[in-house]
Structures are given as structure tokens and as C-alpha cells.
């Protein structure tokens, strides 16, 4: 009896295996920003290659988050009207750094999934480099960090996190510069975020929720 059941169920599994056969939406318009579109494939590439300003290997980005970041980049580059040239050397250098994050073979596998050559990633890298430069020009240079902010960060964040990791915190004088960079980056990031949101309010953005639903 049991074998009969298995025999009846197997064709169902075979059908499930063979039918895509079964149609599926492979790509669609995920968003329209100022008259240009971001496709679902664009978003998946950004997600798969973790193409984002902060190179955090441990961060997994959802489809929605990747889309929102892609929209931010598109809005900033469109509305800021700055002619920023990205040299081939710059883009290649960044490509090499991204590649080094992945084990051997996985990089090629990821490219193959999309049918990409390495050169096909260039537009995405260039867009990110332009975005980072625009943000950097506006927010990194003018940000001031006071001594009291550094001290507070040392006492409230650095020391507890080092101790949590079982390490002895280094003296303030040794980590002062590092902490200053972190605070400046965080502040700039906060200001940049507010600025980007204000630019988004001026842009014409349409997110195609149906496309994102298809992707889930």
C-alpha cells in the first residue's frame, strides 16, 4: 500500500521538476526613478554582489533594501548634476577588492547566474563610486568631531565592545584617531541620509510592488 502511494506521488514530484516548463516571472520593472527603470535583475545583482557603499561582508541585504539603496543612488546622481568621471583603473581596482571577498569559484558562479561577464558589473560599480564621491564631497569633509564625543564613544561603545570580545581595551590615546574616523563616518552617514531623503522627495519615484511580490 505504501509503495502504491509512493508510486502515485512520484509523478507529481516529476511534474514539479519538469514543468518549468512551469512559467515563472524572471524579470520585471522593479522601480522607475526620474524616467529610468531599475529592473529586478539589477536589484538581484546588487544583492548578490553586495554592491553597497559600506563593504560589510556579514551584511545580508533583503531585496527591498537593495532596491531602496539603488533608488537612493539613482536619485543622488540624477539630481546632483555633477560630471564625475570614473576611470577604468578605479573601477577595476574596486572590482578586484569585491572579488577577493568570495572564495574561488563562487565569484564565477555568481556571474554565471546572471549571464554576466566581469565587465558587465562596471555600470553598477561606476554608479556606486559616483554616489560615494558625491556623498563624500558633501558630508565627510565638513564634519567636526569634538574631544568629548570621542571620549564618550570610548567609554560607552569601544571599551564595552572590546571587553565583550574578551579583549583588553587599548588606551584612548592609541585609538583616538580610529574612533574619530568612526564617529565622523557615522555623523556624515546620518547627515547624508537626511539629505538623500530630501532629494527623494523631489524625485519622481514609482516602486512596482507587484514585481517585488513576484520575486518573493
Amino acid at each position: 500500500m505504501r509503495l502504491l502511494k509512493i508510486g502515485l506521488l512520484t509523478p507529481a514530484f516529476l511534474a514539479f521538476w519538469l514543468i518549468p516548463g512551469r512559467s515563472q516571472v524572471v524579470d520585471c520593472m522593479a522601480a522607475e526613478v526620474n524616467g529610468k527603470i531599475i529592473t529586478l535583475t539589477d536589484v538581484r545583482i546588487l544583492q548578490a554582489f553586495a554592491i553597497e557603499p559600506e563593504q560589510r561582508d556579514d551584511r545580508t541585504v533583503s531585496l527591498r533594501q537593495a532596491l531602496e539603496e539603488a533608488i537612493n543612488r539613482r536619485v543622488v546622481i540624477d539630481l546632483v548634476h555633477e560630471d564625475i568621471e570614473v576611470s577604468k583603473a578605479e573601477a577595476d581596482e574596486l572590482l578586484i577588492r569585491w572579488k577577493e571577498r568570495y572564495p574561488v569559484g563562487e565569484w564565477q558562479n555568481r556571474l554565471a547566474v546572471f549571464g554576466l561577464q566581469e565587465s558587465g558589473l562596471r555600470p553598477y560599480l561606476e554608479e556606486m563610486i559616483r554616489y560615494v564621491r558625491i556623498i563624500g564631497r558633501r558630508f565627510n569633509e565638513g564634519v567636526e568631531v569634538s574631544l568629548s564625543e570621542i571620549r564618550d564613544y570610548y567609554d560607552e561603545v569601544y571599551v564595552p565592545s572590546e571587553r565583550a570580545r574578551g579583549r583588553e581595551p587599548r588606551p584612548l590615546t592609541q585609538v583616538l584617531q580610529e574612533i574619530e574616523v568612526r564617529i565622523r563616518r557615522a555623523k556624515a552617514g546620518g547627515q547624508a541620509s537626511v539629505w538623500v531623503q530630501s532629494l527623494r522627495a523631489q524625485a519622481e519615484i514609482r516602486i512596482n510592488e507587484r514585481c517585488l511580490e513576484e520575486a518573493r
Binding site: R2, I6, F13, L14, F16, W17, P20, Q24, R216
Partner: peptide
């Protein structure tokens, strides 16, 4: 029998998934 089902089922899921 179970092994046959698993052999048939799991690849089907992988292929049918809507992702790349």
C-alpha cells in the same frame, strides 16, 4: 522508495524556485 522521492523532489524545488 524514500530515497527516490527525495532524489526527485529536492532538485525540483531548486529548479522551480523563482530566483536565479
Amino acid at each position: 522508495a524514500s530515497g527516490l522521492c527525495l532524489f526527485l523532489f529536492i532538485p525540483g524545488i531548486l529548479v522551480s524556485a523563482a530566483g536565479p
